[in-house]
Design a protein around this nucleic acid. Structure first.
Lengths: 160, 160
DNA sequence: TAATATAGGACTTGCTTGGTCGGACTTGAG
DNA sequence: CTCAAGTCCGACCAAGCAAGTCCTATATTA
């Protein structure tokens, strides 16, 4: 599995949309919802959470809406996902919180935590700017290392 | 989130345990379950699934149990997780199956698929052998690229 | 044959997720 | 000042899924 939640999907779609919009106009939740066929009330709640996480700023009142809170080249997919779904965690336990029956007997924590940090890394290396223009011309400087492009031949095993 | 299921946890714990056991003796489900405080019936079903996926072989009857089906250096965490939770998928849709309302409007698929393949990659580069000996002596040859060790700083290169 | 394994389907339960509703607050226009 | 459009935000509901239990069948050994 490892599927991310629909709310996270919606958040990414909206953030990408806003990354494409001009930086000083605000777009309403309803407008975005209609563009992509997303339940408006739900998207609203998602956007509110993004505001609370300081990824968006909201403009209240008539003709209000949302705007990115920062440079789309610096906001990453990881930021969005963590704002919605909470911190990425592969295991039930973390260095602080041993929320697991077999914590003391467990021998697989450490390697899994390493894997987790590689996953966070994968999420953090894709910026919203990249989402907004999915086919960057070769040589376009996008504040991100290049190994993210080049769809990883997914080594030995059957990926599916 | 991105949390993996408890069944997958149990599977990894069991597989690691078996990777540590001698290769020609079989270990029963109950034995493993008791070692780690895992519900026996549940673990049994997990192990059965691993047999069906050809990661384990089972020995029936009294003093039966389970054995790894292959070299622990070649079996990876990705294999185990995919056997239990099904193919890793970050999005609801895949190149074949557009299982999503906003498939045609959606612009974030491709980058997310790239991220997915990076995640699979992270899972596939950790072998059961590595799980079994979490602190490999420097220089130990374990059929796996070395950038997986060296925890977090996430080396900005290589991958391929 | 008795004891101990795996194999596997059916079922319960509790939490999470997706989605809805209704009210409070903000702004802009008359 | 007041009203309407629109946003913010918490509470609520329902369906689905994951975790765990139970029960039966089958295989193997002593």
């Amino acid at each position: 599995m490892l599927r991310l939640s629909k709310k996270a999907d919606y958040a990414l779609i909206a953030m990408r949309h806003l990354a494409g919009a001009s930086a000083d106009s605000s777009v309403s939740a309803r407008e975005i919802a209609e563009s992509y066929g997303i339940p408006a009330e739900l998207l609203a709640k998602v956007l509110q959470r993004l505001v609370r996480s300081r990824l968006l700023v909201s403009v209240q009142g008539t003709r209000g809406g949302y705007r990115l809170a920062g440079d789309p080249r610096l906001l990453t997919v990881a930021d969005v996902i963590q704002a919605i779904d909470g911190p990425v965690a592969v295991t039930a336990c973390s260095p602080d919180d041993h929320g697991c029956e077999q914590y003391d007997r467990c021998e697989i924590r450490d390697p899994l935590w390493k894997i987790k940090s590689r996953i966070v890394d994968a999420l953090a290396t894709v910026s919203l700017a990249e989402l907004a223009e999915p086919a960057p011309a070769p040589g376009t400087p996008v504040a991100v290392p290049m190994y993210v492009r080049g769809t990883a031949p997914a080594p030995p095993q059957a990926v599916e």
